[in-house]
């Protein structure tokens, strides 16, 4: 997990047609912690939401074999239940709620040491890749984190 590069997923542990489970370890240090917060480092809630969105995004990319790109469109019922400090080991789960026409909805959550960290319902627009470079980058990153069809 590299917060400052929005690289939120370390490894995909399991992938099914409608679910994905991934893990990430919060780094010990990050420029993000210099501001959030001085002397009391915590992963910002928006980055936890981003982490759930990325896990969901990889699930959706897998379902459509990287033909198009999911872009986060809305976040509902987001609950940030616990603080996340450096070195925390996170398990991220996302489940498909609905596969619509040009959009998809997922339910996602993050756990750590058996405790619920956060959860939300996320909506994505599924759009053509705006640039071939983005598609290539997504495929490369997916391979790095072990995203392979089950």
């Amino acid at each position: 997990m590299l917060l400052e590069y929005f690289s939120m997923i370390d490894r995909v542990m399991s992938l099914g047609p409608e679910t994905i489970t991934a893990v990430s370890k919060v780094p010990e240090s990050s420029p993000v912690f210099e501001g959030h917060f001085p002397g009391h480092p915590l992963v910002p809630g928006v980055l936890l939401i981003e982490t759930m969105a990325q896990a969901s995004g990889y699930l959706l990319l897998s379902r459509i074999d990287f033909a198009r790109m999911p872009f986060l469109a809305s976040v509902k019922e987001a609950k940030l239940r616990s603080f996340v400090a450096p070195l925390a080991e996170l398990t991220i789960e996302a489940t498909l709620v609905h596969d619509g026409s040009g959009y998809a909805v997922t339910s996602a959550r993050i756990m750590a040491e058996g405790k619920r960290i956060c959860d939300a319902e996320l909506t994505f627009r599924i759009m053509d890749f705006p640039d071939p470079g983005l598609e290539e980058a997504m495929r490369t990153r997916a391979a790095q984190i072990g995203l392979t069809p089950s």
């Binding site: 469109a73 809305s74 609905h98 596969d99 619509g100 026409s101 040009g102 959009y103 909805v105 909506t123 627009r125």
Partner: peptide
Amino acid sequence: LDIVFAIDKAFGIKVPVES
């Protein structure tokens, strides 16, 4: 988008908005 999702759910269909 929210409205289409709600229609999809309420009627058990997939509104083909893209087409």
